[in-house]
Computed example of a mutant assay.
Amino acid sequence: MAILTTGVIENPTVAGQKQTATLSVRYRNTGHLPAVIQIWGYYLQGSTKVEYVVDSITLASGVVKDTQHYAQFDALEFRFMITSQDVKLKVWGKNVSGTMTAIYPVRPVDPISSGQIHEQGKKATENQLYAIHPERNSVDVLDKSTRAPIMTIPVGINPQGMGINPLTGRVYVSNYGSNTVTVIDGSTNTVIATVLVGASPAEIRVDSKTNRIYVTNQGSGTVSVINGTTHTVMSTLKK
């Protein structure tokens, strides 16, 4: 497992516009096994880091995937937790016209907690890191500082994706082999719900403002929308 960071990216204003309007990230899996990448994005408000991106993607062997992120802040930072050393990252900035303006190197860092303190929110989890283990059908909870295992949480079959709502402290794990999403209470690290979704769920995206969880079902070509309060599927969208 690797944890990488862009470091703090200073984003000056040039001719009335931010040098980097969009941050692009390219992920390339050169290995023979799928890899899970968890993504955190922060903007700096004074000396405070405010989390505004929490995402998770699953990358099959040989696959290249690009993601785009809003970046019109004075300073920002992105961090990535990757389950395989075979995943290569490239990060660059683009201006409002789509022209590349900078390439940002990434470097290893110590593990970060999956939950952060939000200026407008509360602690989701404190001093903890979550790691998916598809081969064991479980999620490990690790101590942020020491990397020591705290506990193992059994989930569904072949977990692939993870999403976190830092405002509620809920952790969502998609179980590719059992067509479910496991909901974990980050304050107690206990499973509080199992939600049946479509076939072969993989990627999860969490909208912390609306408390909605979007699950991509690869086997059925749909997206399940989960209500984060009731832990039920509100709707199923066609991809």
Rank of each mutant, 00 (worst) to 15 (best):
T99K: 14
I112A: 10
K88L: 06
I117P: 06
S114Y: 14
K90S: 12
T99I: 12
E126F: 09
W92H: 11
G115F: 05
H118F: 11
K94C: 06
S113K: 02
H118A: 13
G98A: 06
P105M: 00
S114N: 14
W92S: 08
G98I: 08
P111H: 02
N95E: 01
D86H: 06
V91P: 00
S113V: 03
V91A: 00
G121T: 04
Q85N: 13
S97C: 05
K90D: 11
G98Y: 05
A124Y: 07
L89M: 07
H118K: 12
T125W: 06
K122A: 13
S84R: 06
V106D: 04
K123H: 09
I82L: 05
I82F: 03
M100G: 03
V91I: 05
I112P: 03
G121I: 00
G98Q: 04
Q120I: 14
Q116T: 13
T101G: 03
K122Q: 12
K88R: 11
T99Q: 15
I112D: 04
H118R: 14
S114D: 15
A102L: 10
D110Q: 11
N127I: 01
Q120R: 14
T99F: 13
M100H: 05
G121K: 03
N95T: 03
G98R: 01
G115A: 11
W92M: 08
I103G: 03
K90V: 12
T101P: 02
A124I: 11
N95Y: 00
L89W: 08
S114T: 15
I112S: 08
K90E: 14
W92N: 09
V91D: 02
S113Q: 03
A102K: 14
I112G: 09
